[in-house]
């Protein structure tokens, strides 16, 4: 929110909240209201553990949402993150598996663990670079490009795992990262997600590259004519998003001690959904990481309440559809009324 940028130089009375702040607050209020509503309707919903689970169960998607949000603000899609999660996870396993296993799927390249993880990150970043190349250099619409790289990344994962998974012959330390708990009960990935959110909010609100993202998304032509190197910036954002996906992939592979080619399925979709629920506009130039976070809470409350009401898990697709539809119409309506 812009209020973070207040400096003591001038006293500002009657300062109007920006549209951005307004929407973020609206999303947060909706999240809280939904939570209260669910607490009333759903038995055993209002419990501390349940509240914590709303966030911790969704660490992967929320982390991916950060990169996706930055890209959406800059006016670009990234649908490759789910596939990239699978690729990075599978790569980390394959590279770390020792050589000379009983069959193909238990034989890896036998890299030392740090090197294996670095290799997995490199693979994820390569997908990000591919996105940037097609979007920035060739000017192909990002939706088409990232649908393609989504399949390329998942396809590579499937090739490496022969369409299934690799989970044997791993070095001892492989499962550490994903299962480490800090402060008693909190898993390392959740802590990393928290740190990522803080860093992302700092980048968005306080750093130059954060502001450049908004300029690029709000008016690409004006940004170029103001001396901003748009291509370089969008490239950076795709690499950033890919790096997050790589990290998530490695952590998930470590948590389950396996590289599974179907991991992260539909995560790109969920990351997009929580960003849209959080008020990020696909036209670019509008949205925030905090909004995306509350969007994730909304989705988590809705889906877990639905489970609590003994609805079949198949309901999640319909709930997501309805939630996104309502979020988009509500946002359009609210901003139109406010700025009338």
């Amino acid at each position: 929110m812009t209020t973070l940028a207040v400096s003591p130089i001038t006293a500002r009375k009657h300062r109007r909240l920006s549209d951005q702040g307004f929407i973020t607050v609206m999303v947060a209020v909706v999240a809280v209201l939904l939570f209260l509503l669910a607490s009333v309707l759903v038995p055993n919903f209002f419990q501390l553990q349940n509240m914590i689970n709303l966030v911790t169960n969704n660490w992967a998607v929320i982390s991916l949402g950060v990169g996706v949000t930055f890209l959406l603000v800059s006016g670009n899609f990234d649908l490759s993150v789910g596939g990239n999660v699978a690729l990075a996870g599978v790569l980390s396993v394959w590279l770390a598996q020792s050589t000379g296993g009983a069959n193909t799927l238990s034989t890896g390249l036998g890299f030392p663990l740090p090197l294996a993880l670095a290799g997995a990150m490199a693979g994820a970043l390569a997908i990000g670079a591919l996105n940037a190349f097609f979007v920035v250099r060739l000017g192909v619409p990002s939706i088409i490009v990232t649908l393609g790289t989504m399949m390329v990344a998942r396809g590579l994962a499937q090739v490496i795992t022969h369409g299934s998974q690799r989970n044997t012959n791993l070095p001892d330390g492989f499962g550490t990262l994903g299962n480490l708990t800090l402060f008693g009960t909190v898993k390392l990935p959740v802590v990393l997600m928290g740190m990522l959110l803080l860093v992302a909010v700092f980048i968005e609100r306080r750093m130059l590259i954060g502001r450049v993202t908004y300029w690029v998304g709000a008016n690409p032509v004006a940004a170029t004519l103001s001396g901003i190197d748009r291509g370089r910036h969008v490239t950076r954002l795709y690499l950033f998003s890919a790096a997050i996906a790589g990290m998530v992939g490695i952590l998930l592979a470590s948590e389950f001690k396996s590289g599974f080619s179907n991991r992260g399925m539909l995560m790109e979709f969920d990351a997009l959904v929580i960003a849209l629920l959080g008020g990020v506009a696909i036209a670019g130039g509008f949205g925030s990481v905090i909004g995306m976070f509350f969007g994730a809470i909304i989705l988590a409350v809705v889906t877990s309440a639905a489970t609590g009401l003994v609805l079949s898990p198949d309901w999640q697709f319909i709930l997501k559809a309805v939630a996104v539809f309502l979020a988009i119409t509500a946002q359009t309506w609210a901003l139109a009324r406010r700025n009338r």
Binding site: T2, S18, D19, R211, Y214, W215, A218, N219, V221, A222, A223, L225, G285, F286
Partner: peptide
Amino acid sequence: TQGLFTAMSIRE
């Protein structure tokens, strides 16, 4: 279309 970021404030 070429000079301003119309959705943003004067400050920004």
